[in-house]
Design a protein around this nucleic acid. Structure first.
Lengths: 149, 149
DNA sequence: AGTAAACTGTATATTTGCTATACACCTATG
DNA sequence: CATAGGTGTATAGCAAATATACAGTTTACT
């Protein structure tokens, strides 16, 4: 049986593999290829119609400048629309175009499919063990929050 | 109790948090700050004294060009040394300098400390559940290998 | 009302880590 | 001994992000 250290290594290796996989740009509808940061931004706007640039930056965990640039790129690709806020001329509200919504939909579907694959693997895990896993991950997350902040 | 989907989300969130944490450049001895790719390269050279550029690139999963550039950077920082291979004039053998070894040592210690924190969290996981986790992760890794390659 | 502070988004230059392409050099195989 | 394949490298370019500075807008204060 593997010891704790080996289990930790296994987890680390998997995390890196997963991230490596995520980095590969994916094809969405009609020849549209989007990178991870792009589709992530689209997902956030889709989940928060009318969000502004500052809030988007905060959600993504990047600077306002970076968010602004990403928005320009997605607008040029015809995926995102900028509208001046009805409340303030200094503020922009962000929306998905029809095409943006289509990509978002596609992304959600893929996410769901992956989640189902996940779930089918998880399915073979006994209930007791699953409970222990949740507890473990929550402790792990707490530790990550501690050392990061 | 959380269902499978929620557990999947929890895992995804943690993976991203962990990667985010890893991205922060860390300080090693006397004001030396190293990024993740840098210290990762140093770790590989430390574990494989005399490795050549091509093998390093393969281990890191990057192109030879990228590895070459990284080596130049680390050499300029005084952490890595290049020596022409005694077997072939076309080949270089890579070694850590004293300073490189110091950084490597520091990294190992930190890794160990993190691992211990990890282990103490893992410690509270029942043995049966741990076994299930290993099985789950191995299935997960297999799935990742399948969709990536 | 008038002004300063704080917040909006943006422009610009720079950085990091990588790829792709082309290349010069060395080695091995026929 | 030629040529195919393996070394490492130079160079240009890209994606994503930071840092800095800035112009315009809103808020707060007196």
């Amino acid at each position: 049986m593997k010891n704790d250290k080996e289990l930790a290594w296994l987890m680390e290796r998997i995390i890196h593999k997963y991230i490596q996989y995520e980095k590969i740009p994916q094809q969405y509808c009609d020849g549209l290829v989007l990178t991870q940061p792009e589709i992530h931004t689209i997902a956030i706007i889709g989940d928060n119609e009318g969000i502004n640039v500052t809030a988007l930056a905060k959600t993504r965990g990047i600077t306002k400048g970076a968010a602004s640039q990403m928005i320009y790129k997605l607008r040029d690709k015809g995926l995102v629309e900028k509208r001046v806020s009805p409340d303030s001329d200094a503020e922009l509200n962000l929306f998905l175009t029809e095409m943006g919504k289509k990509a978002r939909e596609e992304h959600l579907n893929r996410y769901k499919t992956n989640g189902e694959k996940f779930a089918s693997i998880l399915n073979s895990v006994p209930k007791e063990a699953k409970k222990a896993m949740v507890e473990f991950f929550e402790a792990f997350e707490k530790e990550l929050d501690r050392i990061s902040g």
